[in-house]
């Protein structure tokens, strides 16, 4: 469960979010809107990467301003560019990096890493350097490194923008199977078509909040 209460975010001189209020209990939530409309800031509020200038963000019952560390453990975040998210030289090392604080025995780390890589078709690449993967595989690796922690909420900031059609579909399929709550920022309307709820953002405000067909219609009108 995510709750935003009159959230304002000011970065320097600019007000990026101007009073956003929303209760988001649905399992799959999409956020669409023009570039610079505040979508990415909204996403970053949900795991405490950005803190509200005023108002409160409550995620899984915790205020992000007070419990950022705990929230980051429970909320996974997938960025647009996997190259900015993969921090270890090889595939398996990067997934294992996520587990570093769990103080698990080496075999257990190994097992979890193998499991998650296996699930997303990267098992054969475990010992390969990350830069040898294709763009789509890199995004899957970034996803594996997030999912291995079994987050309760997954926030994705334009996860398919850099991917080809095949890999976008793959990510869409993975999304459909995920049991946890997901919040996806995207310009990829096909990806969001079967979501439970879409928020349309414009100039730092939510201007429409509806199931996909109505929200997408509103968005198209806004863009024309």
């Amino acid at each position: 469960m995510i709750e935003l209460d009159d959230v304002r975010v000011r970065l320097g001189q600019r007000e990026v979010l101007c009073g956003v209020t929303a209760r988001l209990p649905e399992r799959r939530i999409g956020v669409i809107g023009a570039n610079g409309s505040g979508k990415s800031t909204l996403a970053r509020l949900l795991n405490g990467l950005v803190l509200p200038t005023s108002g409160t963000v409550t995620v899984l019952g915790d205020d992000t301003r007070r419990h950022a560390a705990r929230i980051r453990r429970r909320v996974g975040f997938l960025f647009t560019d996997p190259d900015a998210q993969i921090v270890m030289p090889t595939v398996a090392e990067d997934v294992a990096f996520s587990l570093r604080r769990h103080k698990l025995p080496r075999e257990e780390v190994q097992r979890r890493v193998t499991d998650v890589l296996d699930r997303y078709g990267l098992a054969g690449h475990a010992d390969h350097p990350a830069h040898q993967l294709s763009g789509g595989q890199k995004q899957l690796l970034a996803l594996c490194s997030v999912l291995v922690l079994e987050p309760e909420i997954l926030v994705m900031d334009e996860p398919t923008t850099l991917l080809d059609l095949r890999h976008s579909r793959l990510v869409a399929d993975v999304l459909r199977e995920l049991p946890q709550q997901v919040v996806v920022i995207s310009h990829d309307l096909a990806l969001l078509a079967d979501f439970d709820r879409l928020l349309v953002m414009d100039e730092g405000r939510i201007v429409a909040d509806a199931p996909p067909p109505a929200a997408i219609g509103h968005y198209r009108k806004l863009m024309s």
Binding site: L11, T41, V50, L51, A69
Partner: peptide
């Protein structure tokens, strides 16, 4: 905008 400071 990223928050760049760590606690440590």
């Amino acid at each position: 905008m990223p928050r760049l400071t760590g606690g440590k």
